[in-house]
Each structure stands twice: as C-alpha cells, then as structure tokens.
Measured scan of single mutants.
Amino acid sequence: ELVLALYDYQEKSPREVTMKKGDILTLLNSTNKDWWKVEVNDRQGFVPASYVKKLD
C-alpha cells in the first residue's frame, strides 16, 4: 500500500525516516495509530501517521 507525505518530516532518531511533502512511500505497518512504518529510498522507519495519507 502507498501513502503520500502531506508535510516534510525530519527524522529525530535512527528508527525514523526523513520525507518531503509530496513523497510517495510504501506503507509497511499501520497498526500503531500515531507512528506508521514506511519505506522510502530503500530505508525503513517510522513517520508520524498524521503526516501521511493512504492513496486509493
């Protein structure tokens, strides 16, 4: 499943990933309501769920 980055996000820990507004990311896990695991540029990590939106 793919998600769209709604905002820029700068990683604050090694478990997170940086994304730019408009990026298309692969959603790996959305079981946590606050932090979703995504893959971007061959890196996996977490981003705030409120910063991304699922693409239909």
Rank of each mutant, 00 (worst) to 15 (best):
R15S: 12
M19L: 11
D8P: 06
P14C: 11
N32Q: 09
M19H: 00
E16S: 06
W36L: 05
K33I: 11
E11V: 06
L27D: 01
L28V: 12
Q44G: 06
S30E: 13
A5T: 03
L27W: 01
T26N: 10
V47K: 00
K20W: 10
Q10D: 15
M19P: 00
L55R: 03
A49L: 01
N32T: 06
E1P: 12
L28W: 05
D56H: 14
R15M: 14
D23L: 05
E11R: 12
K33H: 11
V3H: 04
S30F: 07
E1I: 15
N41H: 15
E39A: 13
N41R: 14
R43E: 05
V3Y: 13
Y9C: 02
L27E: 00
P14A: 11
W35Q: 03
D42C: 14
K12T: 13
G45W: 04
L27A: 02
T31Q: 13
L28A: 03
L4F: 09
E11Y: 05
S30K: 08
R43T: 07
P48H: 03
L27Y: 01
D34Q: 10
F46R: 04
D23Q: 15
K54Q: 09
K20D: 04
S50A: 14
K20A: 09
G45D: 01
V52C: 14
V40R: 15
L4I: 15
L25A: 08
D8H: 05
T31P: 04
L2P: 06
E11C: 13
G45C: 03
Y9L: 00
E11D: 05
D42L: 10
Q10P: 06
L55E: 04
Q44S: 12
T18F: 05
E11I: 06
E1F: 12
L4D: 02
V17M: 13
L55F: 10
K53A: 12
E39W: 08
K12S: 11
V3C: 14
D23C: 07
V38R: 00
A49W: 02
R43F: 05
Q10V: 14
L25Q: 00
K12L: 09
L28I: 15
W36M: 04
S30N: 10
N32H: 11
P48W: 02
V38Q: 00
T18G: 08
D56Y: 12
V47N: 01
M19Q: 02
V38A: 02
V40F: 15
L25H: 03
D42N: 14
D56G: 13
L55Q: 06
D8F: 04
N32L: 09
K21Q: 10
M19S: 01
K33W: 08
S13A: 09
V3S: 04
Y51Q: 07
D56A: 12
L55G: 04
K54P: 11
V38G: 01
T18M: 04
K37V: 13
S50Y: 09
A5H: 01
Q44L: 06
S13F: 06
G45V: 05
V3D: 00
Q10R: 10
K21G: 06
R15G: 14
W36A: 04
M19Y: 01
K53G: 10
M19D: 00
V40A: 15
L55S: 04
T31A: 12
D34P: 02
D42F: 13
E39H: 07
L27P: 00
L27K: 02
L55D: 04
N29S: 13
V3E: 00
T18Y: 04
S13N: 12
